[in-house]
Simulated scan of single mutants.
Amino acid sequence: MESWPDPSWLPQVLQVLGSRSGSGLSIPGLLLELLALVGSVAYGCSRAFPFSAWGEALFLLLQTMALGFLIQHYGGHTGRGLLLVASYWLLLGALLSPQAPPWVVTFLQGANLPIIILSRLLQAATNYRQGHTGQLSGLSTLLLFGGALARVFTSLQETGDPLLALTFASSAACNGLLLGQLLYYRGGHSPKPPPRPKMD
């Protein structure tokens, strides 16, 4: 099975480009997402898995880097966006280097599970706090949800690695939460505001 560029983040990038804004998107969540993707690419390469098993993470990495840059750029921090992109390229290069300790790459792949969960929960918390999903793309979230479900089975078939399958299953569950929020808030619901402190 060949790996093609994953289209799931493309609608998100186009939505940010169209609105010239990244409002409502969690920057800490996006940075964690990039860390998880760097770990996935390095792990796939170090284990000499077929490109179809990890190539999707590479395309997602490129698209997420573009999204991170655009959010910073439209927020008036172009230099910070360029620094973000350069930092993740340097990290990936270091992890792919023959001098990189194998345990570091394995640790990063193992840490993907909590990293992915935390990144999605940060976005979910941002949505709840704002009472809307901002520029979060419904199409991207749907594609990420469906893609993660499919990758649970393909990763088991192609690599037999339960760690990869568990990572994709967790990603599907978290993307399902975001999808639920998109449906809920677009239906006109909003969270209850926190209670105001009593004034003496």
Rank of each mutant, 00 (worst) to 15 (best):
V13P: 09
L156Q: 08
G188T: 10
I71D: 03
D200P: 15
S97Y: 09
F168T: 00
L82V: 08
G24Y: 03
S40D: 05
V85A: 09
R129H: 10
G29M: 02
P7W: 06
L70H: 01
L58M: 15
A53T: 00
G24E: 02
Q123P: 13
L62N: 04
A148D: 07
P11L: 08
K198I: 13
F49I: 06
L91I: 04
Q15V: 02
A66F: 02
L96M: 06
W9E: 04
L82S: 11
Q130R: 15
T159H: 04
G18C: 05
E56S: 14
V105K: 12
G93T: 04
F59M: 04
F51N: 02
L25E: 06
L92I: 05
P50S: 03
P98T: 07
S140H: 02
T167R: 00
D6S: 03
L96Q: 06
S26V: 00
P11A: 02
T78C: 09
L83Q: 10
Y184W: 15
G146R: 11
R120T: 11
G160W: 13
F153G: 04
A150Y: 11
T133K: 14
S137H: 11
A172G: 09
G131W: 11
Q157I: 00
G131K: 11
R186I: 12
G176Y: 12
F168M: 01
F49D: 13
S87H: 12
K192S: 15
G147H: 08
S137V: 06
L91Y: 01
L83F: 05
V85M: 06
I71V: 11
T106S: 14
P195V: 08
A172H: 06
A100I: 00
M199G: 04
D161A: 07
L82A: 12
Y74T: 06
P98S: 09
S3T: 14
P50T: 04
L149F: 14
G134D: 06
A148Y: 04
R47Y: 01
S3Y: 11
G138I: 12
L32T: 00
P195R: 14
P50E: 08
S3I: 02
W103R: 12
T141N: 10
Q123W: 11
Q63M: 08
S140G: 08
G75D: 12
G81H: 10
L143I: 01
H189A: 11
G93C: 04
D6W: 03
L149W: 15
Q135T: 15
W4Y: 12
G76Q: 10
G81M: 15
E56N: 15
A148H: 06
L113T: 07
G22R: 01
P5F: 03
Y88M: 14
L156G: 03
A173V: 09
R20H: 03
T106H: 11
A48C: 10
Q99T: 13
L58S: 13
P5N: 07
S52Y: 07
L183T: 02
Y43G: 01
V104C: 10
L156K: 03
G68H: 05
P102D: 04
L118V: 13
S23R: 13
L60N: 14
W89Y: 14
R151S: 10
Y43N: 00
G147V: 07
S97C: 08
A169Q: 02
T78M: 14
A150N: 03
E33W: 03
V152L: 07
L177M: 07
